[in-house]
Amino acid sequence: MKTFRSNGKLFLIGEYIVMDGAKAFALPTKFGQCLFVEDSSEKSNQIIWSAYKADDSLWFEVQFQLDSLEILSTTNQKLANSLQNILIQAKSLNPDFFNSNNFYTCKTKLEYPQEWGLGSSSTLIDLISQWIEINPFELNQLTFNTSGYDIACAHHNKPILYTNQPQIEVEELDLNWDFKDKLFFVYLNQKQDTQAVVGNHYKNKPKDWGLINDLSELVLDATKVDNLTDLESILDEYQDRLEAFMQIPQPKELYFSDYEGSIKSLGAWGGDFVLVTYREGMETYFKAKGYDTIIPFTEIIL
């Protein structure tokens, strides 16, 4: 059996502007997704694919013809169609693999609750690319066509500074922060399902290159801070300026306006996790509002 693994991701700062080639500061997570592949010569020309959630419950199952990638049977047509499209695009990058007449039994397993939104799609792209031996950024471009920071997080084991223009560049960062114990991630009890809508909202606005350049400088500044106060100042300024441009409220304004610390939206605004800086009584504050998933920085970030 072959085993492949990819990291999940959280987007600290640089969201939206990364689509215009700006720098992004992202955090690979200790939780990700695994792919287990068995290759048998007893049968031929099929893929049996089973996807499992973190609690070992079956997410969905599908059976493909290997050479044509025709769906022979499935428990979830929508998910099967999505996986089929990924495999079709993978085949365009390495057609010989799908002409091998082999029989594959594939099993994926999430390492975190599905609703957390740490990158089930990006880790899947990276896992399939490892298995089929293709470039994950090329496969991403042919499928989900994200900025690619999530693909970079999938196979880097340190925080990264990422850009995709004029070409993909990834720099691993050593965060020697002595204030990591003051950083927490709070789950907003809703998986991010507005990413496409909000992303298009940004894309459809006229480009403000002055703003993009200013925000890019804040991203770089965030990688160089050595104290919590400076990081809070950078994160707050980034959100305030982006909010004014996009006319979309921050989660802090919507839900936590009386919290004294910083609350940073991560990735597309509207769901999943936020980064929270510690203040006395923090845990009691969030739990009183119904937000019980509070994870220390060091327990989730590589």
Rank of each mutant, 00 (worst) to 15 (best):
1 M>T: 13
1 M>H: 03
1 M>K: 08
2 K>W: 12
3 T>K: 15
6 S>I: 00
6 S>H: 07
8 G>H: 07
13 I>V: 14
14 G>C: 02
18 V>A: 13
20 D>A: 09
21 G>E: 12
28 P>D: 11
30 K>P: 07
32 G>R: 08
33 Q>T: 03
34 C>F: 14
38 E>K: 14
39 D>A: 12
42 E>K: 09
44 S>Y: 13
44 S>D: 06
44 S>L: 04
46 Q>E: 14
47 I>Y: 09
49 W>G: 06
52 Y>P: 01
53 K>C: 11
54 A>F: 05
55 D>L: 08
56 D>W: 00
57 S>P: 00
59 W>I: 02
61 E>Q: 15
66 L>P: 04
66 L>M: 12
68 S>W: 03
72 L>N: 02
76 N>T: 00
76 N>H: 12
78 K>L: 05
79 L>V: 00
79 L>S: 13
80 A>T: 04
81 N>P: 00
82 S>M: 14
82 S>W: 03
85 N>T: 11
87 L>T: 14
87 L>C: 10
88 I>D: 06
88 I>C: 11
89 Q>P: 05
90 A>D: 11
94 N>W: 02
95 P>R: 12
96 D>Y: 11
96 D>F: 09
99 N>F: 07
99 N>E: 14
100 S>K: 10
101 N>M: 05
103 F>S: 13
105 T>K: 14
112 Y>P: 08
120 S>D: 03
122 S>I: 11
125 I>P: 06
125 I>Y: 11
127 L>A: 10
128 I>L: 15
135 N>E: 11
140 N>D: 15
142 L>T: 01
145 N>R: 11
145 N>A: 15
147 S>W: 08
150 D>H: 12
152 A>G: 10
158 K>V: 00
159 P>K: 01
161 L>E: 07
167 Q>C: 02
170 V>I: 15
172 E>V: 03
175 L>I: 04
176 N>M: 05
179 F>L: 01
181 D>Y: 01
182 K>P: 00
183 L>F: 09
191 K>I: 01
197 V>P: 01
198 V>Y: 14
200 N>L: 12
201 H>E: 11
201 H>K: 08
204 N>Q: 13
205 K>C: 10
205 K>S: 09
206 P>C: 07
207 K>W: 02
209 W>A: 07
211 L>R: 01
212 I>S: 07
212 I>F: 15
213 N>P: 07
215 L>W: 14
215 L>S: 11
215 L>G: 13
216 S>G: 14
218 L>S: 06
223 T>V: 07
226 D>C: 06
231 L>M: 02
233 S>L: 15
234 I>L: 10
235 L>Y: 00
237 E>I: 08
237 E>K: 15
246 M>G: 09
249 P>W: 02
249 P>R: 11
255 Y>M: 13
255 Y>F: 15
258 D>K: 08
258 D>Y: 04
263 I>F: 08
263 I>S: 04
267 G>A: 07
271 G>Y: 02
271 G>W: 07
274 V>E: 05
279 R>D: 04
279 R>E: 13
280 E>W: 00
280 E>V: 01
283 E>Y: 08
284 T>D: 11
286 F>A: 04
287 K>W: 00
287 K>N: 04
290 G>Q: 09
291 Y>C: 01
296 P>S: 07
298 T>V: 01
301 I>P: 00
